[in-house]
Design a protein around this nucleic acid. Sequence first.
DNA 1: AAAAACTGTAACAAAAAATATTACAATTAA
DNA 2: TTAATTGTAATATTTTTTGTTACAGTTTTT
Lengths: 136, 136
Amino acid sequence: MSNSRFPISLHILTLLNEAKGAVVSSEYLSGSININPVLVRKEIMNLRKHGFVESKEGKGGGSFLAKNASDINLGEVYQAVRSSNVLGQSKNEPNPKCPIGRQINQHLDSLYNDAENALIASLSKQTLADFALKFK
Amino acid sequence: MSNSRFPISLHILTLLNEAKGAVVSSEYLSGSININPVLVRKEIMNLRKHGFVESKEGKGGGSFLAKNASDINLGEVYQAVRSSNVLGQSKNEPNPKCPIGRQINQHLDSLYNDAENALIASLSKQTLADFALKFK
DNA sequence: AAAAACTGTAACAAAAAATATTACAATTAA
DNA sequence: TTAATTGTAATATTTTTTGTTACAGTTTTT
């Protein structure tokens, strides 16, 4: 994960929730997040793929939430943007001739799985609606 | 976190544990991990700073565990290599003029804290000794 | 005392990853 | 028909990560 995809996606979802169903343009979203509109559109593509949002093309188009904010939990959002593991393994190629090196990746994997599940469980305690409620 | 610091550190610690107190050179470690020896020495510097290992300079020098493997839990190791947050914020500078943008970082932070604590709790269930036991 | 094998560390280079920019076809609304 | 917008690709730029080189300092061995 590019490590900022989660905050970007959550930011988008929070803004769409705020809009209460009105369509919001990627231009507007990128203005609040302060990143490039094309990146926003890419994230939206992913959010759409996962059923969180829908978009409308053409003039006056934009995006809006595809489900109720109380039916989107943050663990799901995390999983939608997750690409690599939280704990590492960018390009981990230990020496296969070393008895430790040869086996370590499988052990790391199981460690990562457990840790990541704990992370997801923590995030899943909150829905988008809960999160949005914190803004005054 | 550079996302591979955790696996590198854990790899180092596992190898040092395997050595049962004998000093191990950064050259040897880097051979098993398959990364540059200078990177290994940098990680060792950090592990040393956190009291996990000690090093011996000069000919025949190297590193060894500074405490018993059963007194090192993986949550501590994670925290020793942790630099940025697991969930993001590389350079998150939302628009302060937007009511959502203005507040989102503080809410993300508290979310991250909870999630990361859950991650650490999961990792802390295992010590280095437990981890090393998995290698055959 | 000299040589050899290390660590510690800095400075720089290269590679990889993330982010931004530009461009434009397709769509829709006014 | 024009304007505003999405979708998407291609490319460029920036940032981050990783590797390399270099060398002073330390310790052991001869």
